[in-house]
Simulated scan of single mutants.
Amino acid sequence: MKAALVIIDVQNGWLDMSSGLKRSVEERLGYMREAVSLFRAAGAPVIFTYHACPALGLEPGGKGFELHPGLAAAEADGKVVKDQMNAFNGTDLERIVRERGCDTVVLMGLSATQCVLATYYGAFDKSLSPYLVRDAVCSAKEENVQLAERLCDTLSLKALSQILGNDGNKLVGHGDNYAPAAEGRA
């Protein structure tokens, strides 16, 4: 298994439209940053998707199109602009994943029961194995996060660290008790 991390649509515009979604992202930002750090430390691919929706002011170059300030795409990261919920539809996401030698996608971002879930199931159509990062999927409604995590295979940050060949024992806590050290929870 060689995995690519796909961060879905964590853009300012979506968060400005929904206080519930913004709250959800803020609560999970530490997990998202830690997942990105784990993939980068392992030299594994990181790919950001951006949902373009000009009718809502989400278009390249606009403030709403930009990533949440707590996440930053590096120069080496893949970047995919999409206009559908499933990030594989009408984009080169599959090509980017395959060119990086991956057969697995690990997803996080928003929204749990829309773009994340659509992309999760879309991965099967591309013969890719999908997973969600536990505690790194967001929604305006917490019950939607819980639903997505029940429907989909999820991986804890410790499991991701071990799969990527990092030393999972250096993480604070373990399994269901893990919390990013930056968040001050153990």
Rank of each mutant, 00 (worst) to 15 (best):
K2N: 14
A3R: 05
L5H: 02
L5R: 01
I7T: 09
I7S: 03
V10W: 06
Q11L: 05
M17F: 10
S18L: 06
S19D: 13
S19F: 08
L21W: 02
L21A: 07
S24F: 07
S24T: 10
V25W: 01
V25H: 03
V25E: 01
E26G: 07
R28H: 09
R28G: 06
G30R: 03
M32F: 02
R33H: 07
R33W: 02
A35H: 11
A35R: 08
A35V: 07
F39E: 00
A41C: 11
A41Y: 02
A44T: 06
P45M: 05
V46W: 04
V46F: 10
V46H: 01
I47M: 13
F48P: 12
Y50K: 14
H51C: 12
A52S: 15
P54C: 02
E59M: 13
E59S: 15
P60K: 15
G61C: 14
K63Q: 12
G64I: 01
E66V: 03
E66C: 13
E66P: 00
E66M: 08
H68A: 13
P69K: 14
P69T: 08
P69L: 12
L71T: 12
A72K: 15
A73Q: 15
A76V: 15
D77R: 15
D77M: 12
K79P: 14
K82F: 05
D83Y: 13
A87M: 10
F88S: 10
N89V: 13
D92R: 07
L93P: 03
L93N: 01
R95C: 02
R98Q: 08
R98W: 09
E99P: 00
V105F: 07
V106W: 09
V106H: 06
G109N: 00
A112H: 08
C115L: 00
V116N: 04
V116W: 01
V116R: 00
A118E: 08
G122A: 08
G122F: 05
A123G: 11
A123L: 03
K126C: 09
S127G: 03
L128Y: 09
S129L: 04
P130Q: 08
Y131M: 10
L132M: 07
V133R: 09
D135M: 09
D135L: 05
V137H: 04
K141R: 03
E143V: 07
R150W: 06
C152N: 06
D153P: 00
T154L: 06
S156D: 00
L157N: 13
K158C: 04
K158N: 04
Q162W: 02
G165N: 08
G168Y: 04
N169P: 01
G173H: 08
H174I: 01
H174L: 04
N177E: 07
A179D: 04
A182M: 11
E183K: 14
R185F: 06
A186V: 14
